[in-house]
Design a protein around this nucleic acid. Structure first.
Length: 323
DNA sequence: ACCACCACCTGAGTGC
DNA sequence: TGCACTCAGGTGGTGG
């Protein structure tokens, strides 16, 4: 479930189950799900088993679960997950094994049932058809700006000053904040974008400039802002970039309200349920249909070896560059 | 420091 | 039925 809204749906689903939970057992059934982990499956399992998960945090499309006890050398660590193109994290008890199950992590939740007895253990299942996603145990480093590393939901209210709040996994530290992060720096985004001569869509998809946006939400935001994907970013007026950023936020928030975008059973929440934003898409996948704004037929074009969807009238192609 | 391209994978759909 | 081909929500490393 790749873009920000879909990953946030997963994070929100994980949060109540994993916060304060202790890892009982780890089974890696496909090592390819550990490409982000520096070590073999046994190392991953050994380092995770017996540890307590503090929360579920997200920045852009990266998810991580800070671990309460430090690692072997005393450095704080986290369980990192990236869903790639087709990853899912499912929660359940005695769930039949999914087709592309790669990793199973059994946890003991911190809560108790109404009788005061401990809750039954829960299985966290990492499922991924194309194996572009992966998990890892990674060390964490302080955030450069000193602000919370990502979005942690209700954990912020419970433990606003917890040490893990301002630490980020090493392999996520190069990722920019996402536009829904209160610490996102709009001016810095404008500065970076105006230094790029490439098309604005390339900039939107660059996770080092702004994170969380993928092909769907880039196309939707550009349509809303009436910008062609190949408009050189460094020639866009500041006002146009500010407007674009607002449209990005609006699109992401709406998608979040709808539980994300699901075209098929691959993009689901931790309970296997689909989101409904696909019904509200204006251009992505809408080629051949009328533009909801002006009625012109939406077209699909190649850009960056992937498809882009535009209204040729609302989003006119930029004039040829003279350099 | 950029920028364009390629690799990493599996499965669904299409046309012959 | 089979085969070749295209396409799919991402990221990282490689050359130029």
């Amino acid at each position: 479930m790749p873009e920000l809204p879909e990953v946030e749906v997963v994070r929100a689903g994980l949060e109540p189950a994993v916060s304060g939970a202790r890892v009982l057992a780890v089974h890696v059934t496909d090592e390819r799900a550990l490409t982000r982990h520096d070590g073999p499956a046994e190392d991953f399992a050994d380092r995770l088993t017996g540890r307590t998960i503090a929360a579920a945090v997200r920045r852009g499309k990266f998810l991580w679960m800070p671990l309460e006890q430090p690692g072997g050398d005393g450095t704080p660590e986290a369980l990192v997950a990236h869903l790639g193109m087709s990853g899912q994290i499912l929660l359940g008890r005695d769930r039949p094994a999914a087709r592309h199950r790669r990793i199973v992590i059994a946890v003991q939740p911190s809560g108790t049932d109404p009788d005061g007895a401990p809750e039954a253990p829960v299985e966290l299942e990492f499922v991924d058809q194309r194996t572009f996603g992966s998990m890892a145990i990674d060390t964490t480093v302080p955030t450069v700006d000193g602000a919370p590393a990502g979005f942690a939901g209700a954990s912020d209210d419970r433990a606003p000053d917890a040490a893990w709040r301002r630490r980020i996994p090493t392999q996520v530290s190069h990722i920019a904040r996402d536009p829904l992060d209160p610490a996102f720096d709009d001016d810095r985004f404008l500065q970076m974008a105006r230094k790029r001569s490439s098309g604005i869509k390339r900039v939107l998809l660059d996770q080092g400039v702004v994170s969380g946006i993928g092909n769907i939400y880039a196309d939707e935001s550009l349509w809303a802002a009436k910008l062609h994907y190949d408009r050189p970013a460094d020639r866009l007026p500041r006002a146009a970039l500010r407007l674009l950023l607002e449209e990005v936020r609006t699109v992401l928030r709406r998608a979040l309200e709808d539980g994300g975008t699901s075209f098929d059973a691959q993009y689901v929440n931790v309970n296997g349920q689909s989101g409904y934003f696909s019904q509200r898409l204006n251009v992505y996948g809408q080629q051949g249909k009328p533009c909801p704004r002006c009625g012109t037929t939406i077209v699909r074009q190649e850009f960056m070896n992937r498809s882009s969807h535009i209204c040729p009238v609302c989003q006119p192609r930029p004039r040829l560059r003279t350099r």
